[in-house]
């Protein structure tokens, strides 16, 4: 091989970059996020009533869109009542509806958001519920 030294340096850089994710995670325990649903407010409810505004699978994938729609609906159209897929009515409010049950932002919201490394800007305007530092 001609210019072997330079080419090997280049290949080493390429190999390092291409396999970087494998080395970066070496020896790190992969903790699965585990959002907690055991707030006092949820525990108070009867077993069959422990439901979010929409089914779990929907909320998991689409909650950001739902919240965005709520915001637009409240702020722009002054429509504050949300009718869910079962016909039940809810007040569209992050602080008063969502966080009433899910009062554990750190163990609920942040659990997945930190895992996915996303920083939603909800709390730029809203007030996060008070939590005991654990």
């Amino acid at each position: 091989m001609y210019n072997a030294g330079k080419i090997l340096i280049g290949l080493a850089i390429f190999f390092g970059l291409a396999t970087f994710p494998f080395f970066y995670n070496m020896g790190k325990a992969v903790a699965k996020p585990d959002p907690k649903l055991d707030t006092p407010e949820i525990m108070k409810l009867a077993k069959q009533d422990r439901k979010c505004v929409e089914p779990k699978e929907f909320m998991r994938a689409e909650h950001m869109q739902l919240l965005n729609n709520w915001r637009d609906s409240v702020v722009r159209d002054n429509v504050r009542v949300y009718v869910n897929s079962e016909g039940k009515k809810f007040d569209m409010s992050l602080q008063n509806t969502c966080m009433r049950c899910h009062s554990n932002k750190k163990k609920f919201c942040d659990e997945c958001h930190n895992y996915m490394a996303v920083k939603p800007y909800c709390w730029d305007c809203h007030i996060a519920p008070k939590e005991k530092e654990s």
Binding site: P21, M26, R60, A61, E62, M116
Partner: peptide, 19 residues
């Protein structure tokens, strides 16, 4: 059409950690 992104990351993390 959103996917359950947390599960997706579990899959990708499984790939890079060879588990």
């Amino acid at each position: 059409v959103r996917v359950d992104i947390v599960s997706v990351k579990q899959l990708t993390m499984g790939l890079v950690s060879f588990t």
